[in-house]
Write a protein that binds this DNA or RNA. Structure first.
Length: 408
DNA sequence: TCTGGGGTCCTAGGACCC
DNA sequence: TCTGGGGTCCTAGGACCC
């Protein structure tokens, strides 16, 4: 049974939302960047792209290309809000919507076409509703499967509509560079180039057995991709697999080597990870610490816990233990903490009174932070900039350590 | 003014058990 | 005493996506 799969991709999403919410930015070259000083371009408006400004450039590089570029710090809450409203619109056309990222979704509209008249009609309705409500355009790809639908949506931007029908597949793929396929990146393309495979046509014709010998299970998948075959279903959120890890990492304002400085960042990261884990209702058995040096060499180490944890303090102590097992050679540029081996639970009663107190305290803080934003309340050691010289491993987790730093 | 941050999946090697 | 597996779990690292 042939499926009709749609992939929808918002054009320059963050930049478009910013231009929409601030009319002064419309028609101008703008770029959305991370909020801290050491950051890169996350999204550039089409006006900026005309100058060669693109995702991944440093702000400095971007300014070289486009001196009049307007840099806008990222506003994730706004994008998340707009995104969820757009996803709601998509659900009016099929319940089978798979949110692929903040600005992309797959839809299985096999059963919807007859209801709305035609493919083109559905696309028109979706595009015009998103445009009317949010003032942003999107590119839509339609094909017999997700792989090809995603490829199709990339083929015409902005405001594109590309339909790949069954009979078009081999013609479309014949000269298509393999890097255009979702799943084949720069490294894989370079490996395949050694076998003189550069286009999807060449990949599809290459003997499957030889691909399997060289790449194992991945080889089989590659062969299928070359032929434009993909049986993976569109998975709506309610059927999606449970989250497998929760983590945060941050590039520091400056490279640091002082243990006390590192500990302060670890505490902050532990709180971010812990709070999100608790919001998800997950506990993790393993904590990963990631370290990046100034020269960008990045490595990690993980530590397994005797039981599943999700309190910030427990995560922090685990991270510090890992840190102490490392011998840092250089100043640190980035730190990251990730909780894995997750267990999903609805309730877990703490055993001891002091644990109950801590849990209650944590829940109270979470509630405030969920409502009023990150770090509205936090433990005092996070705020205390004077603590530099101290080598305290365990911060003071006392009720009186809570301080409200937000405007009420 | 060098180079973000959130994830998932795969591989490969070693430990350990039967 | 010497030998060969298979299976599973853990760890580190890398590729890839947005």
């Amino acid at each position: 049974m042939e499926r009709i799969i749609m992939h929808i991709d918002m054009n320059a999403f963050f930049a478009s939302v910013e231009q929409q919410s601030n009319p002064a930015l419309r028609g101008k070259p703008i770029a959305v960047t991370g909020s801290d000083s050491r950051t890169v371009i996350l999204t550039a408006s089409y006006e900026a792209r005309a100058f060669g400004v693109k995702t991944g450039l440093t702000t400095w590089e971007a300014r070289q290309k486009c001196p009049d570029l307007i840099l806008v710090p990222t506003n994730n809450r706004l994008y998340t809000h707009v995104s969820s409203q757009i996803m709601k619109i998509l659900h009016d056309y099929t319940p089978l919507v798979e949110v692929f990222s903040i600005d992309e979704a797959f839809m299985d509209i096999t059963g919807s076409v007859s209801m709305f008249g035609s493919l083109e009609r559905i696309c028109y309705l979706i595009k015009s509703r998103i445009s009317a409500r949010f003032g942003i355009t999107c590119s839509i790809g339609i094909a017999p499967n997700k792989l090809l639908a995603k490829l199709a949506s990339e083929m015409k931007k902005p405001d594109g509509l590309t339909i790949i029908r069954n009979e078009d597949v081999s013609r479309t793929l014949e000269h298509m560079p393999i890097v255009e396929l979702c799943g084949i990146g720069r490294k894989m393309a370079a490996k395949l180039a050694l076998y003189s495979i550069r286009t999807c046509g060449e990949l599809g014709r290459y003997p499957a057995e030889r691909l399997k010998m060289r790449f194992g299970i991945v080889g089989e998948k590659l062969h299928q991709m070359g032929l434009g075959i993909d049986d993976s279903p569109v998975i709506p959120a309610e059927e999606a697999e449970e989250v497998k890890s929760v983590g945060h990492s941050m590039t520091l304002k400056r490279d640091i080597r002082e243990r006390a400085d590192i500990l302060r960042y670890l505490l902050q990261l532990s709180e971010m990870v812990g709070r999100r884990a608790r919001r998800y209702g997950v506990w993790g058995k393993t904590v990963h610490l990631t370290v990046r040096y100034a020269d960008f060499t990045t490595f990690g180490k993980q530590g397994s816990q005797p039981h599943h944890i999700n309190l910030s303090e427990e995560i922090y102590l685990a991270a510090v233990k890992i840190l102490d097992s490392l011998e840092l050679q250089h100043p640190v540029r980035l730190l990251g903490i990730r909780l894995t081996n997750l267990q999903h639970q609805t309730s877990q009663l703490p055993l001891f009174p002091e644990e109950q107190t801590r849990l209650k305290l944590t829940e109270a803080m979470d509630k405030v932070n969920n409502r009023h934003g990150d770090f509205t309340v936090m433990f005092a050691s996070l705020l205390d900039q004077q603590e530099k010289g101290s080598h305290v491993i365990s911060p003071a987790w006392r009720p009186e350590g809570i301080r409200n730093v937000a405007v009420a």
